[in-house]
Nucleic acid binder design. Structure first.
Lengths: 160, 160
DNA sequence: CACAATTACGAGATGCGTAATGATC
DNA sequence: GATCATTACGCATCTCGTAATTGTG
């Protein structure tokens, strides 16, 4: 089995790169990203090193994209959009919409209005599959931290 | 000007995620990536935290993708391919092919066969624009490190 | 001299591996 | 008890910010 090796390009470098390309200078990008300009400089340098290509022409007036930089920016913009899209898709798929939803509820609340509200939600959204689980608070918390359930309904103060 | 915020998803996490999805278990992915399984576990956890979604069902037999995980993997595979493609495109655009190429050469070599070879290359590839620069070795090195030139032709031992 | 980028250096954060612990069959 | 995955801890690395330096008009 041949394993594919991916180049060590980090998304932080890419977003930094796009910001500099838009801003037209390192220190303006630094202000936009609320960072020091040294951090910007190092990130771009590292990116250029892993690519083996200069992305910007450094001038006293600022930083302009090279030919390779233009080419790269064009694709990176699309990629970052797709990353955001993938994140949103995963979130939507994970929480509801064709997914499961494991809800834990402490026994003392299971007779109150929360339960009836959940029942109403289930009636209106039949495609959402919800599992209700009634037990005591401490066990709910451990199951939540172990990712056995997605949501808990409890009363009182947060523990930690 | 509203600045877009990128989610803090790192490519290392994504490649790790894909490897686990293919391998079907954390420790198998760890072996494939030559890392400890604890590192895999932490990376996936962090990714899940930033997404706010569980990506895998942890079982004693291994790790299987959740619904959100499947959805995410589908898109991430494409994204990683596009990242590789963008990197290759930038490299090609940067070195030659519609780009500039600044070559430094030490004066003592400028009369030798290298120069004639370069001339032959230029004759055959008129779309490549090459700038030749003759000066002494130390200045060539500083210009190279400052990204003023792309390539140097020198003789002798590497300095550092 | 003004302005833009890079480099030096100390401090804090991040991430790994080894080893111990927890959970499930 | 065997096999995964997770957590604890110590250590190495990375990355940042501040400040000094270099390069250019």
């Amino acid at each position: 089995m041949t394993r594919r090796m991916w180049p060590d390009v980090q998304t932080a470098q890419l977003s930094c790169f796009l910001t500099v390309a838009e801003a037209g200078s390192f220190h303006r990008a630094a202000a936009a990203l609320d960072m020091g300009q040294s951090a910007i400089s190092r990130r771009i340098q590292k990116l250029e090193d892993t690519l083996g290509v200069s992305l910007f022409e450094r001038r006293p007036s600022g930083a302009r994209l090279t030919v390779a930089g233009e080419c790269f920016a064009l694709r990176v913009r699309l990629i970052m959009d797709e990353v955001n899209f993938a994140v949103d898709a995963a979130r939507s798929a994970g929480v509801a919409k064709n997914g499961h939803l494991q809800i834990g509820i402490i026994a003392s609340l299971s007779a109150g209005p929360i339960r009836t509200s959940l029942q109403r939600f289930l009636d209106r959204h039949p495609q959402v599959e919800i599992c209700l689980l009634e037990t005591d608070r401490s066990e709910l918390m451990t199951m939540l931290s172990h990712r056995r359930i997605d949501l808990v309904c409890v009363s009182g103060e947060p523990l930690s």
